[in-house]
Design a protein around this nucleic acid. Structure first.
Lengths: 201, 201, 201, 201
DNA sequence: TACTAACCGAGACGGTACGTCGGGTCTTACT
DNA sequence: AGTAAGACCCGACGTACCGTCTCGGTTAGTA
């Protein structure tokens, strides 16, 4: 995987059409049957490709899945910036509610859960995830928080990386552990508490 | 699973020694080879048990693994209460740092990651996890926060369930997604920010 | 293979119906596609059997094929004796002509050629062939020659094993090497020459 | 195969060094791993040649093997005549014993067995074998028998082709079917019986 | 002397089959 | 009835080769 850069050097002969067919098949299959029941054999069959063509370029089905996520995000052009109405509180509530909606939609839930399973059990994949998917997304979030901090809405001493974890971590954790419903009551509660703190004043 | 309660009627003839051998084998195996490579066949072989004995009492390897966790926690008797020195801030910092240490230890990391994988891909398991493992742990956490709230250290209007998510969610999420190091700098930062909020004042 | 005797001891649980289906599939397939293109996968599929069931009991496709021959010969009851009209010359000519006919018939030619390929490339198989198929057939031939010798039609000093090779060897060799047509002109010529010798008198 | 004759027109540009490397690799490989395990891929790799170069000039691995035999026999110049001491009986015994020795030597046994497997399963190859290898060898044998016949040692009415089959057939058949040891006791017995016949006199 | 076409090594490609592993079911014999 | 053992059908694994197909780079013969 990560065949999207240095590729020209060592893989000039690689078939681009096969690569795309494989990534698309993986995307479709993970949605249809889930991560554990998605097999390399099925990916190859659906893509009209020999199994060896998958094994030649990817070390595991997790890696194929990962690349299919990267490919999807590349097509989606530059990652959209978070909304900025000037009011960090309402913006965050809107973003978190939207995220919760997405996580409730099986269309997104199933593949993302699959990706998380893959990452959770493969260090290499986790590192690539960090570099190619998490970092850009974190950058987008950081930019919005930076703007709020610059505007004096967030504490000037605040470590924005911690802030990001604080805001999105609880939601993602509840999603992954299925430990409760994901709705705006919950997400609004998070934003309120995180912004103002939980200590009595 | 959790076959030790109401089901006692139809399982009077069940071999307790086989059940224990199976749970122990599962515990050992998940540590040695991880969740995905742990097979029911291997569990049965190591436990000196027929495969059918596993299939008779558990619906999936995730369920076996889950029961082995429940069994471990039962042996550890009543879940210890969180420390209460009267200072909620230092207590939380201590607890989170200890949790981080645990999550850094492969002895705990591997099986817990396995359990999370199992939960993430199985609603039934998630429900049982919530009932038998998460709820008690959450209760312990809630009791400490309740004490702090009663002592006037936490905001009186605070929803303690959200507070728990706020405090532990970021750490667990960073652990599961392997998105950064788990150390006391991080955990202290979380506690500080959560307690005081991130909004400029 | 050779599972037809001691079987009861170590394979009481073996499925007789699967065994028969496998042997029959092998017989059919070798006729339809030949030895080299007959695959274990196809045998299993046609027999409605898991591949493992073949691998469990036979070491190679040659071994399966061999057993299917043994099974066919068992069903054919006791090996028929060669005709004995009292005239060894005409009897041998009749038998050799019949054998030539058989070898010209693809129904027999293809599987027998397959069996020979298997034997030629596998010592173990050759030994089993010798014990289970060649020896009984040779015994039948020897009995007819013995009768002729007893009747004073063959040289009393003659080693019957050599005689058998002399009579059948040339025909079988021409068949295997495809070095000429198999017809009664040829077989009669063999019998004449072998009986009377080729030395000028 | 036998591509060195009429085809010269369209093969002027053919690389002779590649051709030789392929034939030599085939010879070596068949000795090392046997016919069934010899692959075109391995031949190409060992010869330092692209697979296409083999597929361009030969239709099957059997054809390559066959050509490697032809090449070996060409190097050995004109096929040596059989010894002629004037005594056909002792000459035949000597030749058959020498042949038996050769067939007992794995150096010769393995490749020749491979060639026979190839022939046995490929009509085209069998025809070419007949033309390029069997016919010349048969001619050599016929010449020696002709001399004996001319000298009055063999029956004047004898069909020499049948005689050749009678003399060499049993030995070759025993070799191919591995149905007994190849030694001079056996070969002498054949010669004696074939020369004098087996009929009582 | 350059042109150009075939040949060459290399190796990716869509496939088929390999021999193995494990899933979940079923049967046998023992407790 | 529950159990250890293990055969069974099945599906997938990851690998080896099949025969075909580019890809650049020689290497002849032709212009």
């Amino acid at each position: 995987m990560k065949e999207t850069d240095g590729r020209s050097a060592d893989a000039r002969r690689r078939s681009e059409s096969s690569r795309l067919a494989i990534l698309e098949s993986a995307t479709d299959l993970v949605r249809e049957v889930g991560y554990e029941k998605m097999t390399i054999e099925a990916i190859a069959a659906r893509a009209g490709v020999g199994k060896q063509t998958i094994y030649r370029w990817w070390p595991s089905k997790g890696a194929v899945l990962f690349d299919s996520f990267v490919a999807m995000n590349e097509k989606g052009a530059e990652l959209a910036a978070l909304p900025d109405t000037g009011d960090i509180e309402s913006d965050l509530k809107a973003v978190l509610a939207a995220t919760a909606d997405e996580l409730n939609d099986p269309m997104y839930d199933v593949p993302m859960r699959a990706l998380n399973t893959a990452i959770s059990n493969d260090d290499t994949l986790a590192a690539q995830y960090a570099e190619w998917l998490e970092t850009p997304m974190r950058e987008v979030k950081r930019r919005r928080l930076q703007a709020a901090q610059d505007a004096g809405q967030l504490s000037p001493a605040l470590d924005l990386d911690i802030a990001i974890d604080l805001i999105w971590g609880p939601l993602l954790n509840r999603w992954l552990q299925r430990s409760g419903p994901l709705n705006s009551t919950y997400t609004n509660g998070i934003v309120d508490s995180v912004l103002d703190g939980i200590r009595a004043r």
